[in-house]
Design a protein around this nucleic acid. Structure first.
Lengths: 222, 222
DNA sequence: TGCCACGCAATGCAGCCGCAATGTCCGGTC
DNA sequence: GACCGGACATTGCGGCTGCATTGCGTGGCA
């Protein structure tokens, strides 16, 4: 079992590490959000222990990023901010548990075990852009968690735009994806689909830019 | 969202129920372990709130039973026994969370949300969607605890829709599941089955969407 | 032999989507 | 900076495809 400890105070980190190692848990230590983000990208952890007051920001801000990149990774917040309001904020930001300092290491270990009992999340393959989420496996779009029902052609167009989000998708590639090779198009239907897509994505925080003479580009709104 | 509150003190139960109902959570109340066990057998809950000191024993003893019968059901222990030792005991007995009384209802709600975010347990043999429950082992559908007898083809269709609830099931997959590979279909019989299913599920709070050109999708009604 | 499941077909209907008309914006040229 | 052309945006319309619903008839099962 390998966990990432995100904690800037050296004493605290050292004490926790010692306690965890004693229970055969491998601990990696990240003193800042930036390092933590880097670490979760490269290495494979079973859980994250997250402090809130960090040099480069509130630890909570890390959780949505983790959820996006490593959806199933359990996160337990460890913080001196222990009021009910703080706890609610932590949990509603996506933490799996919230433990106020000071706590007993036994309880921490028990909560770690509890959170690790969850079955691993597998096979998720989704792209997030702003408040838009596109599940590539299920071919399903969501805006703020609400499923967005799209007709076939619009769905196909959105899929390829999202797969290449931030990059220009040539018009020819879009036509091919939406209509297929054979089914040729003799009007501005594609533009019409894009237009309807834009309206339906108005609350998603993304914008579909037309790149004149080339194609379209989807990205998070400014 | 429907939860079971296992609590013997009337005042406590009433206060909690009021608070939860205010957040659109349906609460069933069980004052003893025996009643609680009975309730979880028949009905469909999204979570259990469990007191410890109950007339017929320690609430913790219920957890292993629940884990056996309803593996993925989240359990949050609510107890006046709040020492770290008590917490560890609760969590290591299988509870997903442990909240010491007194607590803020906001925190309870946040912890409920946190615990409900978990993906459904893999070993779980039943799927709940709104008021519909489908037991995958018994191949039995229930609406609000009432068994729903379905003819074979409708049952097969419902099974695959429920297994992939919230996701589009291609028409071809449905045909294959309902009719088998060889048994080809030369009409809109499948549509007819879906239509009859819809009528029978009218009180289940689910809807079966047709995804034009692709297939069908079952999910909780808006 | 009565009942139920289910395939089948007819009818009705909704929504997708192609199309075109009109409006708007952008870039290039002088 | 004014003008112009072309590309994109938006919207309404209508046709057509594919789904919804229902009734009927048959065949299987008790």
């Amino acid at each position: 079992m390998r966990i990432l400890l995100v904690e800037d105070e050296f004493d605290m980190a050292a004490a926790l590490t010692t306690a965890l190692i004693r229970h055969d848990i491998v601990v990696d230590h990240a003193p800042t959000l930036e390092i933590a983000q880097e670490a979760t990208r490269s290495a494979l952890y079973d859980a994250v222990l997250l402090d809130r007051k960090l040099p480069d920001g509130d630890g909570l801000s890390l959780i949505p990023i983790l959820r996006r990149e490593r959806a199933g990774l359990p996160v337990i917040v460890l913080s001196a901010l222990g009021s009910p309001e703080h706890r609610v904020a932590g949990l509603d930001n996506g933490a799996d548990d919230y433990l106020a300092k000071p706590f007993s290491t036994d309880e921490l270990l028990a909560r770690l075990r509890a959170v690790m009992r969850r079955p691993p999340q597998i096979g998720e393959n989704a792209v997030n852009v702003a408040r838009l989420r596109f599940d590539l496996n299920e071919r399903q779009a969501e805006v703020e968690g609400e499923p967005l029902d799209l007709p076939r052609r619009e769905l196909l167009a959105l899929e390829i735009l999202v797969r290449r989000a931030g990059r220009t998708v040539p018009r020819s590639a879009l036509e091919e994806a939406v209509y297929g090779y054979d089914d040729e198009i003799a009007s501005n239907s594609l533009d019409a689909h894009i237009s309807r897509l834009r309206r339906k994505l108005s609350r998603a925080g993304v914008e579909i830019h037309a790149i004149r003479g080339l194609g379209y580009l989807l990205r998070a709104a400014a």
